[in-house]
Amino acid sequence: MRYIDAFNHFFPERFFAGVVETPAGQKDMGKRVRGIPALFDLDERLRIVDSFPDYSQILSLSMPAIDRLWGPEDSPEWARIGNDELAELVARHPQQFPGYAASLPMNAPEAALREAERVLRNGANAIQLHTNVDGAPLDEERFWPIFEVIAKSGRPILLHPIRTREMADYRNETKSKYEINSVIGWPFETGAALARLVFSGIIDTYPDLKVVSHHLGGIIPYFEGRVGHSWDQLGSRTSDEDYASILKRLKKRPLDYFKEFYGDTALAGARGPTICGISFFTPDRVLFASDCPFDPEKGTGYIKATIAVLESLDLSEEDRNKICHGNARRLFGLD
């Protein structure tokens, strides 16, 4: 079986050197990434990819997000550096890396718009966005032109969750504890970002927009019943805003929008949630992904575990092909 890994992460050489010099790159996530050679060592990454038969990766930059690393005066240049380095890797190693997802300096929206136009014109296969921009929601008006450009390109958004320690678990605290912000905060953050795309009207405005939600949609598939029936009654719990009028404005039932997003299989090899996510999105909207190299083995573990889960499922050959490589080929323009 051919596997195209839709969501995994790598730091090219020059970009990585810049990351480790930033304050954010020297603490928290920066502390973690320096301990994973396959995240920045190309030879090690190639060794891992080549250890699996008929396996390749669509590369994207790793965390922290560009807008967490540099201010708006520097982020456009570093986004260009990272994107150009990824494009060069794809050109040099097309068998291992058939495509890449470009990243944008979202804290400088006008520059982000120009960078999106540039990379999509030059062959980027996707755009990686995070679920917030240094704490700001993606549906703010300043970001809408970026969605328009991506929608017109036909290429997908790879939506990566980001929820920092500053986003506290409780109102009377200033920081999240015990890494709750990422371990269980990221799945919530994914659901929240998808909801903002739906209820803000972005999806109705740009109906051709394709969004691949990391970790198989976060909490959304698991709470399908609650998402469906509770948002069918939008406004029934709120008296100070007219949410009921949003239901009249939407062109579809809220749940139907969520089912039209895509999800990837990066679930650390968990079988039950994989079944749940495929059931929710259907095999037409699920892409194989591993989240390499953030497994305990530092590169191979999640790839092996995710392949094993998919091989254990009772899927038709047609559906298995869609999930493992067909949907990726179509969305990323690899055909």
Rank of each mutant, 00 (worst) to 15 (best):
P207H: 11
N172L: 07
G185E: 01
K251N: 14
L197D: 07
A195P: 04
I184Y: 02
A192L: 12
R196W: 03
A244Y: 04
V227R: 05
A195N: 08
T238I: 14
K210V: 13
A244I: 00
L250K: 04
I202Q: 07
F188T: 01
S200Y: 05
P207F: 08
K248L: 07
F188V: 00
L209W: 11
R249C: 01
F188L: 02
G201C: 07
R226P: 03
G225I: 03
G225T: 10
L234R: 13
G201T: 10
R237Q: 14
V198E: 05
G185M: 01
G235F: 04
E224M: 01
K175Q: 13
Q233D: 09
T174P: 00
A192D: 03
S213K: 05
K248G: 14
K210C: 06
V212D: 02
A192F: 01
K210Y: 07
A192K: 02
D242E: 03
T174K: 12
G235S: 05
D208E: 15
G218R: 07
I180G: 00
D242S: 09
S200L: 11
V198L: 12
D240A: 12
L197N: 05
P187H: 02
L209E: 14
D232N: 09
E189G: 01
I180M: 10
Y222T: 12
H229M: 08
T205M: 13
S230F: 14
N172P: 05
I202H: 10
D204Y: 08
Y222I: 10
D232H: 08
T238S: 14
H229T: 13
A192R: 08
K251M: 00
E179T: 06
Q233W: 04
L197Q: 10
G218E: 05
G191Q: 00
Y243V: 02
Q233N: 13
D240Q: 12
E241L: 12
P221I: 05
E189D: 15
G235A: 10
F199V: 12
E179P: 00
S239L: 07
S200I: 07
Y222F: 15
V227A: 05
